[in-house]
Each structure stands twice: as C-alpha cells, then as structure tokens.
Amino acid sequence: MDWLQIVVLSLIQGVTEFLPVSSSAHLILVPVFSDWPDQGLAFDVALHVGSLAAVIIYFREELLRMIGSWFKSATGKGTDEDARLAWWVILATIPVGMVGLACKDLIEQYARSPVLLALGLIVFGIVLGVVDWRFRGSRSEYQMNWRDALLIGLSQALALIPGTSRSGITMTMALMLGLNREASARFSFLLSIPVIVLAGGLETLDLVESGIDVNWGDLALGTVLSGVSAFLCIHFFLSFIKRIGMQPFVIYRILLGIALLWLFA
C-alpha cells in the first residue's frame, strides 16, 4: 500500500470510530477522490486493533475496577457500581451480537450503499440533534439500570443500518434515557470494546480462512496511527461535548449526507 493511503485510512478510522458521524460513510468517500486499490481485510483488522487498544488504554482504570468487581459479583461476593456497569455493558452488547451474526451477509451487501449511508446520516443525525436539544439529563453511567442498558443495546443494533453510526445511536438513546452528555459518550465508548472485539474477531476468521499474505509493516503503521488518533479523539470529544454538545456533529452529518446524495444519487 502507498504510505499516504495508510495514513489517510488510519486517521479516518481512528477519528470516526468514536465520533457520532459514521466511519463507513467516510471510508466510502476515499475511493471517490483517489485511485487507491482496496486496502484489504488484513488492514481493516489492523485498524480495529488500533481503535480497540486506544479505548482500552484510555479507560484502563475504569476497566480494571469493572473487571475486578464483576468477578466478585459473578462469584457471589457482592455487587457495587463498577460491577453493575460491567453487567450493563455485557447486557447492552447482546442485541447487536445476535443481530450482527444473523444478518452478516445482508449487512455486507448493503453496508457500502452510498444512498443508504446518506439517508442514515441525515435521518439519525436529525434524531440526535432533537434529542440533544430537548433532553437535559443529569445521570451518570453509574446510575443506569438494566432497562437503560437493554434499551441502549437495542438501539446499538440499529447501527447495522448504513450511516447510522454506532456511537451516534447509542449516545442518542442514552440522552433520551436521562444520562448527561459525558456519561452518554463514556458508556458508548465502553460499549465499543466488545463490539470491536466481535467485529474484529469475525474479520480475523475470514482473514485466516482466505490465507492472504500480509505486509506486516503496513499493518503495524496502520495500527499505531489508528490507535493514536482514536485516543486523541476520545479525549478531546469528552471535553468538547460538555461545553458545546452534539449540534456541530449533527450539522456535519446532514451536510455529509447531502454531499453523498449529490455524488451518488
């Protein structure tokens, strides 16, 4: 792969993986403005590894507490707020895992449809904007209950619709349920960990079965760039939304959706 292609794809994946703007919509624009060949499945796996590493490193302290408390809870030694949060992440992951496995072929068929991506960007962007404007929640992620987790998990399954954005739809539902902006984003980021593991695991299985030769240097560079950009994205996004909210991303989604319709419809 060309070094510029590696850099561009890595930065796009790292930044848009966690912003409520749909990474798939951005990746589909790359071949429109370049003559680069398809980056291949191995590089996609590497980018997922980078994003996964970023969110784990960023939330390492919370994750260590959650894992320790979850094991105590699972063995009957009591349940605290960290254990409950871990259980809610597990519960919220189940719907998207079930739907993703059941509809894998259908998703792959329509995931890169420019028109569907555009409509998803616009429709769910408007929904996010209305919810962020109308709902002013004050609860943290530690004040969630199992119903909140289940509803957010069900909404996450909608992210399989092109252009929806996994982070965008989960933040939207969390805001509707009364979580504050930062808590909505933090729970969405925690939810990304099992989702990326599942998606990356399926891609890895496909890669092993294909027997494709890989360029380890390209994969290493893509992993590092994706990870660093994703880490910075998480950090600045959490600081940004406390002061300004989701509206700039809503405007951006609508403009990007219109651009996709203009280019492909």
Rank of each mutant, 00 (worst) to 15 (best):
Asp148Cys: 06
Leu207His: 01
Trp88Arg: 13
Tyr110Asn: 08
Leu190Ile: 03
Ala42Phe: 05
Cys233Val: 09
Gly78Leu: 09
Leu119His: 06
Ser192Val: 04
Leu219Gly: 05
Arg65Tyr: 10
Arg65Val: 01
Phe18Pro: 02
Arg139Gly: 06
Leu117Ile: 10
Lys104Tyr: 12
Gly163Arg: 07
Trp88Asp: 11
Ile56Asp: 06
Lys77Gln: 15
Leu256Val: 14
Phe231Asn: 00
Asp80Ile: 11
Ile12Ser: 15
Leu190Pro: 04
Ala118Ile: 12
Ile94Asp: 02
Ser239Thr: 06
Ile90Arg: 09
Leu158Glu: 03
Val250Lys: 03
Thr204Val: 05
Leu255Gln: 03
Leu198Asp: 00
Ala102Ile: 10
Gly217Gln: 04
Met246Gln: 09
Ala83Ser: 15
Lys72Arg: 15
Met246His: 02
Arg112Asn: 13
Gly100Glu: 04
Leu150Lys: 04
Ile6Ala: 14
Leu91Met: 13
Ile152Phe: 04
Leu150Arg: 02
Gly97Met: 07
Arg136Met: 01
Gly211Trp: 09
Ala46Ile: 07
Asp82Lys: 12
Val8Tyr: 13
Phe189His: 03
Ala174Asp: 09
Leu116Lys: 06
Ser155Gly: 07
Ala159Lys: 07
Ala185Tyr: 00
Leu4Val: 15
Leu19Gly: 05
Ala185His: 02
Ile67Gln: 08
Val224Ala: 14
Val30Thr: 13
Leu27Ile: 08
Ala92Val: 05
Met246Ala: 14
